[in-house]
């Protein structure tokens, strides 16, 4: 029983990792007042570019790097249309999802053809931390994961410090809550928002790299399959707090890991009953998280200096 629970939690962490990466990026983006529903597009492009580069060069580091760049490009494009173009941010994010899905599917088919053999790439191996991995339960759950998971723990701590303990974090929040006041206080609203977009692209790209370079080792059409939206659930549920987002992603991860277990357990029920579980959990959990909803006041509204 303990072995089962341990393995489910370990799997939940692996499922939660990309959601948390992307979620923290989105949280920073939203704190600045820009909402990007197109997390899926960032992850998808990160996943594809990472895979492509890693497949061609056999260099994982180079693959991750390229994935980050592609994520940043997509996120900056969203930022440009939202901040400069003052377009509806939700709609643009949505459109970016279509665009990225089309682009990655097209380039994948052009680059690798439609052979029956799935093209693959190297994936990162698990690193067991000596001594710590001997701790019962925790050793397997936390200290025998791949480099991305360790990077995730670092990102959670760092982003927490940046958001709540640095002056840039305060500018970030003020730009999202009251851009006019922030502008009056001498904070460059646009620069802060663009920087938040870059961070979102970076972390979203990393989430994408994780999918292809750590979890799967291959790419296929629509590989994210709605994970970007799941990350958005984690953002709302975690109230845009890095640690909260991780815990929220873990809840989704546990639901998903459990349903995979149940599917393979040989219970004579249609498998869809189990595959629906994470989506139900997401909706129900959202319903219980609505008390004291603290959206940044300027979320989704472009800043105009001369507007009244």
């Amino acid at each position: 029983m303990i072995a089962l629970i341990t393995s489910i939690i370990a799997a939940a962490i692996r499922i939660a990792t990309p959601l948390t990466f992307a979620g923290i990026g989105e949280a920073i983006n939203e704190k600045s007042g820009v909402i990007n529903i197109g997390l899926d597009s960032i992850m998808l492009s990160g996943a594809f570019v990472s895979f492509y580069v890693c497949n061609k060069t056999d260099n994982i580091l180079l693959g991750v790097f390229a994935g980050l760049i592609s994520g940043i490009i997509i996120s900056l494009f969203h930022g440009y249309l939202a901040i400069k173009g003052k377009a509806n941010q939700t709609i643009i994010g949505l459109a970016l999802n279509f665009f990225a899905l089309g682009l990655t599917s097209f380039l994948f088919l052009v680059g690798f053809g439609t052979s029956t053999e799935l093209p693959t790439c190297r994936i990162v191996s698990n690193i067991s931390i000596p001594l710590l991995n001997k701790i019962p339960i925790l050793g397997e759950v936390v200290f025998s994961q791949n480099i991305f998971v360790y990077l995730l723990f670092l990102t959670i701590i760092l982003s927490y410090i940046i958001m709540y303990k640095t002056s840039w974090g305060i500018s970030l929040i003020s730009v999202g809550e009251n851009p006019k006041a922030a502008d009056t206080a001498g904070i460059d609203v646009k620069k802060t928002r663009y920087l938040a977009c870059i961070i979102n692209g970076l972390l979203g790209g990393l989430a994408g790299s994780y999918l292809t370079l750590a979890q799967l080792g291959f790419f296929m059409e629509n590989i994210t399959n709605g994970k970007g939206y799941m990350a958005l659930v984690a953002v709302i549920l975690g109230k845009r707090n890095p640690l909260g987002i991780f815990l929220a992603a873990l809840v989704i991860g546990v639901a998903d890991a459990t349903q995979i277990r149940l599917q393979t357990a040989g219970i004579p029920l249609p498998s869809e009953i189990f595959t629906m579980l994470p989506y139900f959990v997401a909706m129900i959990v959202l319903l219980f998280s609505i008390k004291n909803n603290k959206d940044p006041l300027a979320l989704g509204t472009p800043y105009e200096r001369n507007a009244r």
Binding site: Y80, K86, A87, N88
Partner: peptide
Amino acid sequence: PSSIALLIMGVIVLLHLGNEAL
């Protein structure tokens, strides 16, 4: 590849939505 349709749709929508910025 027929996914070119999705890609073209994405391009058109983005250009349409962002035309004042672009």
